[in-house]
């Protein structure tokens, strides 16, 4: 009887913690990255801290200039311009997900110190007649 009680209590604790994680507000308070909408809504409050910004690279927004790259990150509603001095990873291209870590500048441009590509769960063969490979935007050294 004591054993069953112990086993039952442990299972109850596991289910309890999981339920709290699932239905509690942890997921609203702890976020891995901000969306462009959240960053824009925060306004000047976002200017001091190092934060992560996540979204899609807006089509037609990628410009290589002066040893760096600028592009816009969008969530479909708002967009934030991002500047990086880093050479973007090979997977970087228009329309792909990115997470950038850095600081919002007073000029409204997000200065990225760390650029990460976030790919999705799709794995496909290249279309007929196309070569597999990575973006043509960034040429190798």
């Amino acid at each position: 009887m004591k054993n069953k009680l112990a086993a039952g209590l442990v299972i109850l604790a596991v289910v309890g913690v999981l339920g709290y994680l699932a239905f509690g507000s942890v997921s609203q308070n702890l976020v891995y990255y901000w969306t462009p909408s959240e960053l824009v809504a925060a306004g000047s409050k976002a200017e001091v801290a190092t934060v992560r910004l996540g979204g899609m690279v807006e089509a037609g927004s990628v410009v290589a200039e002066g040893g760096g790259t600028t592009f816009a990150v969008t969530d479909g509603t708002e967009r934030v311009r991002v500047r990086t001095e880093q050479i973007p990873p090979q997977m970087f291209r228009e329309g792909i997900g990115v997470v950038v870590e850095g600081t919002m500048g007073r000029d409204g441009v997000f200065q990225s110190k760390r650029l990460m590509v976030k790919h999705d769960e799709n794995y496909r063969a290249p279309a007929e007649g196309e070569k597999p490979g990575t973006s043509t935007m960034v040429e190798g050294p």
Binding site: V31, Y32, Y33, G54, D120, E121, R124, A125
Partner: peptide
């Protein structure tokens, strides 16, 4: 599935090329 992550969510046979 629950949170914002860098890692992509689980794939399923519908998101992976059948030959893979």
């Amino acid at each position: 599935k629950w949170l914002r992550t860098l890692h992509q969510p689980q794939s399923s046979p519908s998101t992976v090329d059948p030959a893979m």
